[in-house]
Structure formats: structure tokens, C-alpha cells
Amino acid sequence: MAGLKGLKKQRRIQIIALAAVALLVSTALIGYAMRDGINFFRSPTQVVETPPAEGEVFRIGGLVEEGSIVRGQGETVTFRVTDMNQTVPVAYTGVLPDLFSEGQGMVGTGQMVDGTFQATEILAKHDETYMPKEVVDALKEQGVYVDPAESGS
């Protein structure tokens, strides 16, 4: 009878070990599959102070710097995005959102190439008061954002 009890205990340990291995493998596979889907947000200050790794896809956001939009290089548009502390040059090939303009909030997805953020996607605000939450947080961190609702305008 003692041999049967030991066999059951050994079998239980094997099943638990197998389940742990399966959990680790599935977690690793999910992490591997999502590696390109996780785009970390950075403000221009964070990009300048801690440059991202070569080829790392991330999101940058801030205000489109006044007087920085340059069109007419084929379909490529260049501009600078700022958080009023640091500024990062951006190049984007494609059609910009209708509401994209200087002094307005934007978020771009892409990667740094030779000191310029090469954007694959640009999002702009969609009404008078909206600004992406990450941009607001980054500007508040720099001490330059005033909530329009609080300023009374």
C-alpha cells in the first residue's frame, strides 16, 4: 500500500511541474508576441535625456512647435515637437490629420533615426479642448500646461 501512495505523490509533483512549465512557456510566448505592440510613450525631454534604443518603436507627444512645419519635400513633412523644455525633430510621410497645426497637441508613433523621429503615424487633437492625456501629463511635469477649464478661458 505504501508504494501506491508514493506513486500518487510523485505523479502529483509531475503534474504540478508540467503545469508550471506550461505557464512559463505561454507567458513567454505572449510576451514575445506583444513585443512590437507595446509602444512606450515618451515626452521630448525623456527622448533627449534618455535616448531610445536603435530601432525601438515608441510614441512621442507634445506640442507642435510654432513656425516649425516644413512642407514641400515630396509627401514628407517635417516639424518639431516640444514639451516647452526640449524639442525633437519629426519627419512624417503621408497625409496629416486635418486638425494638425502649430501650437496644438500631437502624438506620433515611430522610431529615432539619426536624431530625427521618423513617424509612421501622427494623431492630432480632435476638438478645441482635447489634448492626449500623455501630452497633458508630460506638459504638467514640465510645469507649462494650464488646464483651460481652470484658467477660466
Rank of each mutant, 00 (worst) to 15 (best):
K133S: 15
L139N: 03
V95F: 14
V21C: 13
H126C: 14
A138L: 05
D127Y: 11
R42I: 03
G62D: 00
I69F: 04
P97T: 06
Q142Y: 06
E128P: 01
V64C: 00
R12V: 11
V146L: 12
T78F: 11
T76L: 08
A2D: 15
L4Y: 13
V144A: 09
Y130T: 13
Q86V: 04
E49K: 09
P51S: 08
Q111H: 05
G115T: 02
G143R: 10
V146G: 07
T93E: 12
R71Q: 09
A33H: 09
G108V: 02
R11I: 15
L23K: 06
V95K: 13
I15V: 15
Q86E: 13
G143I: 07
D98H: 10
V113E: 14
L7T: 14
G108C: 04
G62R: 01
A33S: 12
I13F: 05
T45I: 05
G67E: 02
K140I: 12
G143E: 05
F41T: 01
G115Q: 06
E121P: 00
V144H: 08
Y145A: 03
T109L: 02
Q86P: 06
M106A: 08
V81A: 03
M34S: 12
A22I: 11
G72D: 05
P97D: 05
E141W: 06
Q14W: 14
I60V: 08
I60W: 01
V95R: 13
Q14F: 14
T82N: 03
E56H: 01
K140G: 09
A124S: 15
L24F: 14
S68D: 04
I13C: 03
L7R: 15
E128W: 07
I38G: 07
T93C: 11
V21P: 07
I15Y: 08
R35L: 04
T82G: 04
I60H: 03
G143D: 07
V88A: 00
V81G: 01
G94T: 00
A17W: 08
S43E: 04
F40Q: 13
S151R: 12
P132C: 10
Q142A: 14
E65F: 02
E54C: 02
A53G: 12
V48D: 02
Y92A: 01
E75C: 07
V90L: 09
A33R: 10
A53S: 15
A2E: 15
F58L: 11
G61F: 01
G105V: 02
V48F: 02
T120Q: 12
S43N: 07
V136R: 09
I69T: 04
T76H: 10
T27I: 10
T120K: 10
D83S: 04
T87W: 03
V113H: 11
G67T: 02
V144W: 07
H126M: 14
G108D: 00
